[in-house]
Amino acid sequence: MDNFDIEALVWIGIGFAGQALFMMRFVIQWWSSEKAKRVVIPVAFWYFSLAGSLVLVVYAIHRKDPVFIFGQALPLVIYLRNLHLHYKSKGRSAAS
């Protein structure tokens, strides 16, 4: 196996890892909702969203795919903002 094949396999692995991280957010959300018997979005959902998108952006940049880059990079701002709001509200509830 030459270097190109190994490099291609590594990048495919990175792409699949990003997809797996992104998919895990739904598994976590589903599992949490089933346990609570109501719709729940745990903070882990946002961490998996962030991690999955970051890895997929790196993969998309490597592939030089502007549609994929845009589709994964823009939501990063939303995931970061949701985590910020989560921790900001935790600080408020602890203070009250």
Results as ranks from 00 to 15, higher is better:
83 L>S: 10
34 E>G: 09
73 A>R: 01
16 F>A: 08
59 Y>P: 00
78 I>V: 12
3 N>F: 05
48 F>M: 10
66 P>N: 13
4 F>W: 05
4 F>C: 03
40 V>N: 01
19 Q>T: 06
37 K>C: 04
6 I>L: 11
15 G>C: 04
18 G>L: 07
31 W>C: 03
66 P>H: 07
25 R>Q: 15
21 L>D: 03
41 I>T: 15
73 A>L: 00
4 F>S: 05
21 L>R: 03
19 Q>V: 09
94 A>D: 11
35 K>A: 13
72 Q>R: 01
91 G>M: 08
80 L>G: 15
36 A>K: 07
68 F>Y: 14
15 G>Y: 04
17 A>Q: 06
60 A>C: 02
78 I>G: 08
65 D>E: 14
41 I>V: 14
64 K>Y: 04
13 G>F: 11
68 F>A: 12
64 K>L: 08
29 Q>G: 07
76 L>R: 02
96 S>Y: 01
70 F>K: 01
60 A>D: 00
77 V>E: 02
30 W>G: 07
91 G>K: 12
88 K>H: 13
56 L>C: 03
48 F>H: 11
5 D>C: 04
66 P>S: 12
81 R>S: 08
80 L>E: 04
14 I>W: 04
13 G>A: 06
50 L>K: 04
73 A>F: 00
65 D>F: 03
93 S>M: 06
60 A>H: 00
92 R>T: 11
68 F>T: 02
66 P>I: 09
91 G>E: 03
48 F>I: 10
81 R>Q: 12
84 H>S: 12
71 G>D: 03
63 R>H: 08
17 A>W: 04
59 Y>W: 03
28 I>L: 14
47 Y>F: 15
10 V>N: 12
37 K>N: 10
48 F>P: 08
23 M>V: 11
30 W>C: 12
17 A>P: 04
92 R>L: 12
17 A>I: 08
67 V>M: 09
18 G>I: 07
46 W>Y: 15
48 F>S: 05
1 M>S: 10
54 L>M: 05
80 L>T: 13
9 L>H: 13
8 A>M: 11
20 A>N: 05
45 F>L: 08
7 E>T: 15
29 Q>V: 06
2 D>W: 09
44 A>I: 10
1 M>W: 07
86 H>G: 06
22 F>M: 10
71 G>N: 15
20 A>V: 11
2 D>I: 00
19 Q>E: 12
61 I>T: 01
37 K>R: 06
11 W>D: 11
2 D>E: 08
24 M>H: 10
40 V>H: 09
17 A>L: 15
86 H>M: 11
13 G>P: 07
10 V>Q: 09
33 S>G: 11
